[in-house]
């Protein structure tokens, strides 16, 4: 089919002469059509060659493909196992980090509480102020101690008497000059501050037979004022 059997032009040159004549021929319409066909051939050839090179799998034999598939399956299983292991490691690390963080928070809170109890940090918060006006100096150390004790029972976090922070080791004693709290002798009006729930603290001071009543019986005057913000300085 591809070898033409008939020829219209019987005195065409043959062999090398034919090639020479073909190469030197001026492009006719038929030549353009031939060129178009050959362009298509070259294009298809190049596309097919490059696509075959790109896709190595399509040229592989069935047994090779099966082997490649097996390899990939094994590799995938291995990677899945590794992923599980790494996920477990992540979970371990996260939970241990959480525990450490929680422990640190608890410790910090305890530290803060202990600092407040020891009186080494200034404290600000809601609370009450108890002012005792005692012109006749009838208040004794035991009365002041009673008041401090009552405030502590009512949940006071920090207490001060005339600006002196009262902590576990603060001494409240009677002296010839008057009542001494810590290192200083307190003078009227005695101002006691306590930080805690204001309602509870004021109730703890003013119940019948409580601090306010005994102050009144002793001949002095006591006033409790609730406040949203009371500042108590650190010890020292």
């Amino acid at each position: 089919m591809s070898t033409p059997e008939t020829s219209i032009d019987t005195d065409q040159p043959r062999g090398w002469a034919a090639i020479g004549k073909a190469l030197s021929r001026r492009p006719s319409r038929a030549q353009w059509i031939v060129a178009l066909l050959l362009f298509g051939l070259g294009f298809g050839l190049a596309v097919q060659v490059s696509s075959t090179q790109q896709d190595a799998l399509s040229a592989a034999r069935t047994s090779d493909l099966v082997r490649i598939l097996d390899d990939l399956a094994v590799q995938r299983e291995r990677l899945a196992a590794e992923e599980t292991r790494l996920q477990a490691t992540i979970a371990d690390l996260e939970s241990s980090a959480d525990q450490a963080q929680a422990a640190r928070a608890v410790t910090k809170e305890r530290l803060q509480n202990l600092r407040i109890l020891a009186g080494v940090v200034p404290v600000t918060g809601p609370g009450v102020t108890l002012t005792i006006v005692d012109p006749d100096q009838t208040m004794e150390a035991v009365d002041i101690l009673d008041a401090v004790q009552e405030l502590k029972d009512a949940g006071a976090e920090a207490i001060s008497v005339d600006g002196q922070r009262v902590i576990a080791t603060t001494a409240i004693v009677d002296t010839p000059e008057g009542v001494k709290v810590g290192d200083t002798v307190i003078k009227t009006p005695i101002e006691m501050k306590a930080i805690g729930d204001p309602a509870t603290l004021s109730a703890g001071l003013s119940f019948p037979g409580g601090v306010l009543e005994s102050v009144r019986e002793a001949g002095a005057q006591g006033v409790v004022v609730e406040s949203d913000s009371i500042a108590i300085a650190a010890i020292g």
Binding site: A35, L38, F39, G42, G44, L45, A46
Partner: peptide, 22 residues
Amino acid sequence: MIALLALVVGVIVGLVLQPTIP
């Protein structure tokens, strides 16, 4: 001559464009 040129141009175009075959 033009036919040979067309063949070469076709190969080059195919290699440069690298179209995906449907």
